[in-house]
Design a protein around this nucleic acid. Structure first.
Length: 949
RNA sequence: GCCCGGUUGGUGGAACUGGUCAGACACGCGAGUCUCAAACACUCGUGCCCUUUGGGCAUGUGGGUUCGAAUCCCACACCGGGCACCA
């Protein structure tokens, strides 16, 4: 930094340069920290403050908090943080109590993988990353209430993550009340006999293990042995939401296998209905709502029981969305994992078994066993590459179609999934494409029960049409349209007790345990019977123990015959523990799984409200004040939540679920966490690749005549993500050095609408730098450093421009249209630049308008203009409506839509008068050339359109 | 395959509920001022085409509605995202 001053600095010692910007920015950042400028008062408690501020309307403005990755930030990361900061600053200046802060989401795979790579303990590396990121963010001048920041890895924080887990563990979903209730209330119902214990025995007759099993079927957090997504390459199980469509892990892209393992789940399916219905009350992008609706996948249909032929007590229950096609059900299919298979398989192939049905096996049992084995070892990846070719095998069993009475063969096939519906289907090849294919391969009968259009043949028909071939002695659907036929069949089935109308969801329960070190430990211990016990609140937080070996146990990514090993289980001193849980000291075994990385982010918005409370997760007062329901926000929630769209069905669904449980149990007043959601676009960057396809450093690529060269060789250019691996990362730090944080903030906001992705262009940053330089020059003499504004009143035109800008910028900011807000500020600034001298009113207006966008220079100029204190809490200017209407408006006169003349008219001119003036205009008369007039359209005061005869 | 978005100058993008010759604002580019020079800064110009005064053509393509369409409707092309044997 000891370079000789440049000519510009010699020529103009007080020019707004990067060096001056750096000085101004550092000074004001220190000022804000020292003065707690961004502290938002709570209505009560430790963070209570100025009552006058508390009395203002509140705004809770949030970003999706970051992972403190080791790579640090590139310019793409802060886009959303800057946007919320501008929005928050605008609202501070318009009389709101604004809560805006940022924490760190620091548990989970990325942090752990980074720690493993660098050979440091995740706590050490994570804390270092947080410090680094904090420094990078501080430079941007974000107005965060730092008192409210935290990281999810702090025991004081995850104590409450564990506490919420226990709330969920200790509750059940009452479908009658449509809400979660304490499990103790369920126990009381069983004890008193008000609720019948399934199986007919009394509660008092059940032993501890039986009681635990029974309650486990109700708990909202429960352990089960269901098939889960096992990823040997990562060494952990994963939630459905973390597995891609082609059956690979979202992180790392390893194969995922189905494996039966005892794991913790969250009964999110209990909330499927409410999670769909409550979307209507939220101000979210339609695309995200749609994604959630699709993910939850509500479908209406019926459950139908099929009697298994020869097994009086056995029935196969299927779910179908097309009960109207029941007469066309010519065979059935069970998923390979279906429990019933073993019970219905006969010893020998029955009469009439076709060769294609047996796969060459001697007995049904052999055929089924072989098929199941093959299906199990297949990953979804393999299923995918096999395409949709139907495979399967006959079980040897038949079922009875309840309406036709016909014997229909029962198959096992992997195109039926255990996880959806009942894991069994009635196959209706006439109306279902997949069943048609299967029926074709296995030579099964096809009966159409909906009349297809003329000429339709050779494939299934699933469109509208009248029912055909659908009648028996008691039921006749023929001629009915689909909806009526459905209703009729359902009524028929319900009357006979062999089926019912029902709703099914695609959503599965949320797999909640991971075989990781770097996560929240479960506050659960097991007794000698293997019964899970919740730790009492007094034992929270259950701290993550220090271990020498925190690396996950991973396996050959393709080896499905492996099983997970939890790092915590390596520490037997920690695992085996003596505790007194109320009935004397006993030895327990700790749960050694940890929670998934989503856990900490499921509720963090609540903790911002009351971050140091060690009595409660949040005080009721603070929660009601910042999150509670209000006009237009019937379910409460954060006023603005900005983040990437990639969390549509992960974080955003999980967080909604936790909110609803906490709401049901009376811990919070908001049933939704985020009232308004906004997805910012991505900042993309050009990726340059050489002839071998390898990315070359983008900063060293030269452009000549529309082509790109690196070290003399031609390279290709594509738009991609910004990042280290593509050698095109630009850091906020380098832009701050080159131009200053205010310029960076302006550039990021000016690039385009917030929700649109756009390419980064370092060369273009200078445009916003020039804006700030011109603004500076409009107030300060570059040579003397003296303020040059004059107290004289501005002229009429300048006043109009000022008030128009005030009006427009305010509206743009309120609607997150920062790019056009900046255009309007620029326009005004350019106009002011041309004035011989700058009136104080206009200069102050400019400073106030730009203050949310470029807070440091605004503070500096505000101070220079003679104001005490910070511009952060100054009033955003209000536009005077008198200056918003022009004295005269240009009115265009069109003939058949083509402009022929312009008139200067008063804005208040009436339609009649304007028409008169327009028709009298000589240019118009000339253009009409004596032709008659058919019609005149007048839109005073701007337009007259004449349609000649 | 299904469901969502989107397509405007060399570039990023403006344009209120269909209404001033579409292109605000910025980058880039061109010319100029300053400078020994370069950079910075400043000033002017810049949709495309035609030889100008002037005119013609222009919002992915083709059609339609309308006095009037970037904006509404239909079809197609291309780009991006989501889901994908969910019964």
């Amino acid at each position: 930094m000891s370079e000789t001053p440049t000519a510009a600095e010699v020529a103009a010692p007080h020019r707004y340069t990067a060096a001056l910007a750096a000085d101004i920015e550092a000074r004001w950042q220190d000022f804000w920290d020292a003065n707690g400028t961004y502290a938002a008062p709570n209505p009560s408690g430790e963070l209570a403050g100025d009552e006058a501020v508390v009395a203002r309307p509140k705004k809770f403005i949030m970003d999706m908090f970051p992972y403190p990755s080791g790579a640090g930030l590139h310019v793409g990361h802060p886009l959303g943080y800057i946007a919320t900061d501008v929005y928050a600053r605008y609202h501070r200046m318009t009389g709101h109590n604004v809560l805006h802060t940022l924490g760190f989401d620091a548990f989970g795979l990325p942090a752990e993988q980074y720690a493993v790579q660098t050979g440091t303990h995740p706590r050490v590396s994570t804390e270092a990353n947080i410090e680094n990121m904090k420094a990078q963010l501080r430079r941007l001048g974000l107005g965060h209430d730092k008192r409210r920041s935290f990281a999810t890895i702090e025991p004081e924080y995850y104590k409450w993550t564990q506490w919420i887990f226990l709330q969920i563990f200790n509750s059940w979903y009452d479908p009658e009340a449509k809400k979660a209730r304490p499990i103790a209330e369920l126990v009381a119902e069983f004890e008193s006999g008000r609720r019948e214990v399934p199986g007919g025995r009394a509660w008092s007759e059940l032993n501890a293990v039986e009681r635990d099993e029974l309650l486990g079927a109700y708990r909202l957090a429960y352990a089960s042995d269901a098939p889960v997504n096992w990823c040997p390459g990562l060494g952990t199980v994963l939630a459905n939401e973390e597995v891609t469509a082609d059956g690979r892990s979202e992180r790392g892209n390893f194969p995922v296998f189905k494996s039966k393992l005892r794991q913790w789940n969250m009964r999110i399916t209990a909330y499927a209905d409410r999670l769909i219905d409550d979307l209507d009350a939220l101000d979210w992008p339609e695309a995200i709502k749609l994604q959630q609706r699709n993910w939850i996948g509500r479908s209406e249909g019926a459950r139908v029981d099929f009697q298994v032929a020869g097994h009086e007590a056995r029935k196969i229950t299927v779910f179908t969305t097309r009960p109207d096609t029941l007469f066309g059900a010519t065979y059935m299919v069970l998923a390979p994992e279906h429990d019933l298979i073993d019970e219905i398989v006969p010893a020998e192939w029955p009469e009439g078994t076709k060769d294609v049905w047996t796969a060459g096996a001697g007995t049904p049992a052999e055929a089924v066993a072989a098929y199941r084995k093959q299906a199990q070892s297949k990953t979804d990846v393999e299923r995918q590459t096999e395409g949709k070719d139907k495979t399967g095998v006959f079980t040897g069993a038949y079922a009875l179609n309840p309406v036709t009475g016909e014997r229909v063969p029962v198959f096992v096939a992997d195109y039926v999934l255990m996880g959806y519906g009942t894991g069994a289907i009635m196959a209706v090849p006439g109306q279902d494409e997949r069943d048609w294919e299967f029926a074709s391969v296995f030579e099964l009968p096809i009966v159409r029960t909906v009349q297809p259009p003329e000429g339709w043949e050779g494939e299934a028909y699933n469109g509208q049409g009248p029912a055909i071939n659908s009648a028996n002695a008691e039921l006749d659907l023929n001629g009915m349209q689909i909806d009526e036929a459905k209703r009729t069949v359902i009524a028929h089935l319900e009357a006979r007790g062999i089926g019912e109308g029902t709703v099914n969801f695609r959503l599965r329960d949320w797999l909640f345990s991971r075989q990781r070190y770097w996560g929240e430990p479960f506050p659960i211990v097991y007794d000698e019977n293997g019964i899970a016990h919740a730790l009492p609140e007094s034992m929270l937080p259950l701290e993550l123990p220090e271990v020498d070996d925190y690396t996950p146990r991973t396996f050959d990514a393709d080896d499905a015959d492996t099983s997970p090993e939890t790092p915590l289980s390596r520490n037997q001193d920690w695992v085996n523990v003596e505790l007194d849980l109320g009935d004397g000291p006993k030895t327990y075994r700790r749960e050694t799984n940890t929670m998934p990385n989503w856990a900490g982010s499921c509720w963090y918005e609540l903790r911002y409200l009351d971050p140091r409370n060690d009595e409660q997760l949040v005080s009721a007062d603070a929660e009601r004040y910042w999150m509670g329901p209000r006009e237009g926000q019937p379910l409460g929630g954060v006023d603005l939540y900005v983040g990437g769209a990639e969390h549509a069905v992960l974080h955003l669904l999980y967080a909604r679920f936790w909110s609803k449980v906490l709401f049901d149990l009376g811990h919070i007043s908001s049933a939704e966490p985020f009232h308004k959601l906004y997805n910012q676009g991505m900042i993309q960057a050009y990726v340059y690749r050489d002839a071998r396809g390898i990315a070359v450093p983008a900063a060293e690529v030269e452009e000549r005549g529309g082509a790109f060269y690196y070290e003399g060789g031609k390279v290709s250019r594509l738009l991609g993500k910004m990042g280290k691996s593509l050698k095109n990362a630009v850091t906020p730090d380098e832009i701050c050095v080159e131009y200053g944080a205010d310029t960076l903030r302006l550039y990021e906001m000016a690039m385009g609408p917030l929700d649109v992705s756009r390419p980064w262009d370092t060369r273009a940053v200078v445009g916003q730098y020039r804006l700030l330089q011109r603004l500076w020059r409009n107030v300060v003499d570059e040579n003397t450093g003296e303020v040059t504004v004059v107290d004289a009143a501005p002229d009429e035109a300048t006043l109009r421009a000022l008030h128009k800008a005030i009006d427009g910028v305010g509206q743009d900011m309120a609607n997150l249209r920062f790019n056009t807000a900046i255009a309007k500020v620029t326009e005004l600034n350019n106009l002011v630049t041309k004035l011989p001298e700058v009136p104080r009113v206009v200069a102050e207006g400019l400073v106030l308008l730009i203050a949310p966008l470029a807070p440091h220079i605004a503070e500096e100029l505000w101070r220079k203009l003679g104001h005490e204190g910070s511009v952060v809490h100054a009033d955003f200017p209000a536009a005077d409506p008198a200056y918003l209407v022009d004295e005269a408006v240009t009115c265009v006169v069109q003939i058949k839509g083509k402009v022929k003349a312009r008139l200067e008219v008063a804005p208040s001119i009436s339609d009649e008068e304007l028409e008169k003036v327009a028709l009298a205009d000589p240019a118009v008369v000339a253009a009409l050339g004596g032709a008659g007039i058919r019609k005149v359209i007048v839109r005073a005061p701007k337009l007259v359109n004449i349609v000649p005869a």
